[in-house]
């Protein structure tokens, strides 16, 4: 399957997820238990995207800052994100920390 087809399917699927209860349920209330798991999708997915990307190198867990400056830069970015709650500040300090660590280590 080509990338274009995959993107098109994701686009249609995303629209249907957004339309879902607006279109099919209307005024009837949806039980809370049915929606509860969705509350935990964002933190679980975002952590699952970050952790392997910054902790693994060619499939191996590398935690030593000297060998894996990305892990340390991510910890710094996490702290900045926590303090500022700003996407821009997180990107800027994270990239800055990585460049600095790459130059020093």
């Amino acid at each position: 399957m080509s990338a274009a087809v995959a993107i098109l399917i994701i686009g249609i699927g995303t629209y249907l997820l957004r339309f879902s209860l607006i279109g099919f349920v209307g005024e009837r209330a949806v039980p809370e238990w049915a929606l509860l798991p969705l509350r935990y999708v964002p933190p679980a997915v975002f952590a699952a995207l970050v952790a392997p990307a910054v902790l693994l190198q060619q499939g191996d867990l590398v935690l030593a800052p000297g060998a894996n400056p990305r892990a340390l830069a991510t910890v710094i970015a996490l702290a900045v994100a926590w303090r500022t709650r700003s996407v821009a500040a997180t990107i800027v300090t994270g990239m800055g920390a990585l460049w600095l660590l790459q130059a020093v280590l």
């Binding site: 964002p42 933190p43 975002f46 952590a47 995207l49 970050v50 990307a53 910054v54 990305r70 830069a73 991510t74 970015a77 996490l78 994100a81 926590w82 709650r85 700003s86 996407v87 997180t90 990107i91 994270g94 990239m95 990585l98």
Partner: peptide, 15 residues
């Protein structure tokens, strides 16, 4: 590296 950084920010905002 900006990809995981964006997700770091979104992660913190959703916890």
């Amino acid at each position: 590296f900006a990809i995981p950084l964006v997700f770091v920010a979104l992660l913190v905002l959703t916890v």
